[in-house]
Simulated assay, not measured.
Amino acid sequence: MNTSRTTTEQKASTPRTSRALARERTLDRIVELGNAQLAECGAAELSVREIARGLGMVSSAIYRYVSCREELLTLLIVDAYGDLADTVDEELEQAGRDPRTRFLALARAMAAWAIAHPERWTLLYGTPVSDYDAPAEATNADGTRVMATVLAIAADAAEPAGGRPVVQVTPEVQSLLETHLAEFAVQADAVVALRAVTAWSSLVGVISAHVFGQLGADAVAVGEQILDSQVEMLADLVIGS
């Protein structure tokens, strides 16, 4: 589990008191209970009071840790993004350096995580929770880790365009893509970034279609075969073949 409440650098440089360690353990337990509740009844039914009962606390005591349902949702979203990104990173450690192989490993790790944790995938990429907006300052760091990796893979695969058709990118889109490339410290041109973003958004879509059964009952029996074929096509897009 990865709640990402503090960075590794902060943990290393700041000695933690016994009170801080106890608080961290309690927050970890809150996330654990929250994920269990999420799996049982979905995001719409999350209850801070129920988590207080699971901790053996009076309901007023838990608000020292989680002030409201929205804060609980944010903790669970950060935890899910971090766990997904860690799963992808672990898979990529064994994938070698070939960009296509790395993208396939990334995509299959994402799909396996989504299938194993459909309720957490839904929290990240399903229907937005009513009356809740995830705070970017809390969720962006872990929420963009896999996207940054896709950008890096696309950049590693990039070659001169040669005879390939040149995609027309408006100045506004180019500016946006260049901003994100700079943010993630990836050296690539806007067209490479656009391929990566397109592959990323398509990957989320095809995994969601599989997890949510959107291709219909007849496709369920061969769902993973369809997903594998779609991922292969997206790998072609990422590497520009």
Rank of each mutant, 00 (worst) to 15 (best):
A148I: 07
T87A: 09
G143K: 05
G143Y: 01
A136M: 11
Y125N: 06
P160R: 09
A109L: 03
A134P: 08
G96R: 03
L72H: 00
A148F: 06
A116Q: 13
T87Y: 03
L76S: 00
R164L: 15
V169H: 08
L106N: 07
A105G: 08
I153W: 01
G162F: 13
A161F: 12
I115K: 14
R69Y: 03
L104A: 10
H117M: 05
I153L: 02
R120T: 04
Y125T: 07
Y132N: 04
T101G: 14
L84D: 02
A111W: 09
G126A: 05
A157R: 02
A107V: 04
D89I: 09
T87I: 02
V167K: 15
C68Q: 14
T87W: 06
V146M: 04
R64E: 14
N140V: 12
A111L: 04
A155P: 12
W121V: 03
A105S: 13
H117T: 05
L151R: 11
A157L: 06
A116I: 11
T170G: 10
A157V: 05
I153R: 01
A111S: 12
C68G: 14
T74I: 06
E91I: 09
R164P: 06
T149G: 10
E70N: 14
Y63L: 05
A138W: 10
M147V: 10
G82S: 03
V88C: 02
D156T: 09
D98K: 13
A116V: 08
V169E: 03
W113Y: 13
V66S: 01
T101R: 15
L104V: 11
V167S: 14
D98M: 09
I153F: 00
W113C: 04
A116D: 15
A61Q: 15
V66W: 02
V88F: 01
V166A: 15
E159D: 13
T139E: 01
G96M: 06
L106I: 02
T122A: 12
L73C: 03
V166P: 11
G82I: 00
L123K: 00
V146A: 04
G162V: 09
A158F: 12
E93L: 11
L76K: 00
E93N: 10
L123G: 00
D98H: 09
A148T: 09
I77Q: 10
R120K: 09
P160H: 09
V166Q: 15
A158V: 12
L92R: 04
D79F: 01
L106F: 02
S67D: 14
A114R: 01
V150Q: 03
A95G: 05
E70V: 00
R108I: 06
T170M: 09
R145V: 08
A80I: 04
A112F: 08
E137A: 12
L73H: 01
E93Q: 12
V146R: 07
A158E: 14
A134G: 06
A141G: 12
T139Y: 00
E159A: 15
G163S: 14
L75I: 00
T144M: 11
M110K: 12
